[in-house]
Write a protein that binds this DNA or RNA. Sequence first.
DNA 1: CAATTACAGACTTTATATATCTATAATAAC
DNA 2: GTTATTATAGATATATAAAGTCTGTAATTG
Lengths: 133, 133
Amino acid sequence: MKYSKATNYALHTMLFLAVATPNKLVSVHQLAEWQKVSPTYLSKILTKLVKEGMIDSSSGANGGYSLKSNWEDISFLDIIHAIEGKSSLFDCCLNEEPECLIKQTMLSAEEKMEDELKSQKLVELAKKIKVDI
Amino acid sequence: MKYSKATNYALHTMLFLAVATPNKLVSVHQLAEWQKVSPTYLSKILTKLVKEGMIDSSSGANGGYSLKSNWEDISFLDIIHAIEGKSSLFDCCLNEEPECLIKQTMLSAEEKMEDELKSQKLVELAKKIKVDI
DNA sequence: CAATTACAGACTTTATATATCTATAATAAC
DNA sequence: GTTATTATAGATATATAAAGTCTGTAATTG
Ligand code: SF4
Ligand code: SF4
């Protein structure tokens, strides 16, 4: 069980947009070159973020991607959910038996991780990095 | 990102051993039939648990698997680690940059989940289930 | 010895992640 | 309006890992 590389690319891209160029448009070409990944593949990933309403895109010359105006609300969990989906990490055969203790335990542990990821806002990381620089 | 079915089988098996027959030997045949999974596949999984010192096995007629004497210390995390391995869920290209904020955030969230899984002991679940019955 | 059970390794199958290729649509610059 | 630039979509391909099978071996019991 691992986070996918796609999630990794999404997190890095979002932090890049937040730190380096909070307003300007950045092309997938730049982002892909920086992360050493193919532009078409990264494009697929970024399109998911667009559909989740986290970033804007514009076609044409000097087009690219930019954070949406409400970007300061975005958490790590939002980004991860956009790429990995929102279903539980624990799949059991039948999702009947709501009071099953195994399921409860696994879900509650997962919730602890999600709570932490939800509390980590992109904007806070971006601020810290800017101070470092 | 999902927990593997193997982890699911391991958790179910351990709880079965803890609840139903804390002392007696149970064959993989029984365990596999109960979980509707092939015996040879389940056998592979249980061998991992043997190697991690969580259960004992004995060959020969009337052989099978049983919990080890120290089984009351076993947590969910122990079982999961035995099957999924102990490496982090978050893999980034170079594991340099120890102060990287993305990595720190992901690892600390994962730690929250692991802390919860570590606090959930098999024996406590077994007790609750026995009371229910 | 014969039956039963765990263990080991090679192998196959299936599923998913990762990546590529090609074509289309939108926009800006000229 | 034409051309260059950029995002989007869908089909396809490759790589990797999970899931499961098959076969043979070792250990134990009776
Ligand atoms: S017993 Fe619980 S964990 Fe297992 S399959 Fe049923 S609901 Fe899921
Ligand atoms: S920047 Fe941080 S998260 Fe990204 S690859 Fe480097 S260490 Fe890993």
